[in-house]
Amino acid sequence: MKSRAGSSRRPNAGKASPFWAIAQADLKGLFRSRITYGWLLAAVFIQVVRTLGSASSGTTSSVVSSGLSDFVYVWSLVITALAASSVSSEAGELADSILSKSVTRLDYVLAKFASRMAYTLTCFSIVSAVLVGLALRLEVGDYSAPGLASAVLLVALAMVTLTALGVALSVALPSTVVAIVALLVLWYSMTILFPVVGLGFVSPGSMLGDLPGVIKGAWGGAEWETAGGFLAISAVSLALSSAYFHSKDI
């Protein structure tokens, strides 16, 4: 019998490569899609129009808060669609193309989380960089640099949470449409209803209300609770969906 080349058993060949291969392929597909170009163009255009329109009367805190709130109320729809379709949309080829190879379930799920979060944060960074850059140049500055950075980071964390919830639902639910609807219900409940039921500290809506103050430099304890809450939700989503995916039949 011919001896094996043994190439798939080279030292350290297995663990890292599948994760990076899946994450890389996913990111390539996302950044090549027309949705990405459309989203970025629209979002940047709106920020430009907003800041130019507020050139004479607006303040940095109000313009930046307003621009960042677009992510919670509007661009969250795009993130929802992309996150909630991350696993369920490739259910048909998952077993044949990926999991039947030298890939663990954890490799796959973590790669999906990583790629979708990297995608969300990259797009968020581009749009918020334009927003903040223009707001700083055109407006009377009622901001502090740490406050501005904190506000951007808080909203970034909210987007990470939205993405994590989306990927988790995509893992748990077999249908992309159902996952998208479930995520929309969950996200808008968090945004609008959570403050009413005493869970305002993890409500993106409440967070947005505090943003002007944060931008001006007023950082209280509540913002730490919010950040911690978002991180906890993201971590729990990741852990539960990984455990579920490991146990399910493909």
Partner: peptide, 26 residues
């Protein structure tokens, strides 16, 4: 697999390259 399903947007080159990476090939 029978009636295999592969990522539709990939080409044979990109798909086989992807599978090679999954197996840790240089």
């Amino acid at each position: 697999p029978t009636n295999p399903r592969f990522p539709p947007k990939m080409t044979p080159i990109t798909y086989l390259d992807f599978v090679g990476k999954l197996f840790g090939l240089g």
